[in-house]
Design a binder for these strands. Structure first.
Lengths: 136, 136
DNA sequence: AATTGAAATGCAACAGGATTGCAAATTTAC
DNA sequence: GTAAATTTGCAATCCTGTTGCATTTCAATT
């Protein structure tokens, strides 16, 4: 992995403010996808809207991607190195109905779907639900 | 298609109340998936919670299925005839980023995914985003 | 037809997450 | 050092989903 959070941010031309470094560190230390609320709680006394905007910035710069796992709370996970948030980087996600954890299935790439005539593909959100290995 | 909404409801052993018939008619007349709010608006002065519970009943009886298309509002669409809401009936959905319509891609069935060791499949939500045929 | 019990409805209120406006603070450029 | 731009914090709001409870409707039974 790359160096510090600050370095990673600068590399993407994002001002490495304290908040951003903290949020990025959390995302980097978390193996699974996490929600805004979870980030908030891990940080302690931070402002939700600031974290919200930080995550927005990260998404716009392909540092993280968002996952709608159906729980109502959007989750976020770090992009892989070299990710350009294009079709080739799209992968499925797994939501464990027991522990509530959402995992990137980076090996389960999403291939360009066959669509009806006239339909145009842009992106996709594929969430598989079940019980994860830890919960069995 | 089967006869009246009332007949369809009775066939599923659901009391065909006025509300239920109205909601079912809307769902049957709508080619695309619609949200609770849209149903509410099409009906006029009805109570949200009643429609909500009606939709819940319909889901429990495999009359409709719900789709989380990432807009924040859950949408609902009529099940096909013979649907038993099992794996074999799972299909992808298409969300148009221009008009906001969500369409069932009934031909695009979801096949049992290959998961990492120890992971157990239950269900899946696959939403493809792009521009629909009408919006090009 | 009246009584009773169950189911359905309407109303109100609330919960949770996402999002915005605005002012204060911080950073950057000149 | 000052002005402009960016970022942050706070408060408020929107939107959707959901529940509690009293009332109404319906169906079965006497």
């Amino acid at each position: 992995m790359l160096g510090s959070a600050a370095e990673l941010l600068e590399q993407k031309n994002i001002k490495p403010t304290a908040m951003r470094q903290l949020v990025l560190d959390i995302l980097r230390n978390n193996p699974q996808a996490i929600s805004l609320l979870e980030i908030e709680q891990q940080l302690g006394h931070v402002d939700r809207s600031t974290v919200f905007r930080t995550l927005k910035t990260f998404q716009e710069n392909c540092i993280i991607h968002k996952i709608d796992d159906g729980t109502g709370a959007t989750k976020f996970a770090l992009c892989s190195e070299g990710c350009s948030c294009n079709l080739g980087d799209l992968h499925a996600h797994f939501y464990c109905t027991k522990c509530g954890q959402t995992t990137c299935l980076k090996d389960h790439l999403i291939e360009q779907p066959v669509l009806p005539e006239g339909f145009n593909f842009e992106s996709a959100n594929y969430v598989i639900k079940g019980i994860c290995a830890d919960c069995r």
